[in-house]
Amino acid sequence: MASAANANLNAVRETMDVLLEISRLLNTGLDMESLSICVRLCEQGINPEALSAVIKELRKASESLKASENSTN
């Protein structure tokens, strides 16, 4: 039982490493932390196109915040 769980954990780790490398090669801008959150959201049934729209929206918002920070310096 425990060895099956370990095997599954190893499979998940390996898959995550491959997905992170694909993400880097595609220049998606996702780091390991945000990628693992996205993986969990996909596992919960969130539509990947809708999720990409969310990520782009969050980037826009945080970039405008950082830009306003730079302009006040």
Partner: peptide
């Protein structure tokens, strides 16, 4: 793969490619 939705994650990465 240990995950249920590998293709959905791959679709997400394609959608975000070059972003």
């Amino acid at each position: 793969s240990g995950l249920k939705e590998v293709d959905a994650v791959l679709e997400l990465l394609v959608q975000l490619a070059g972003s």
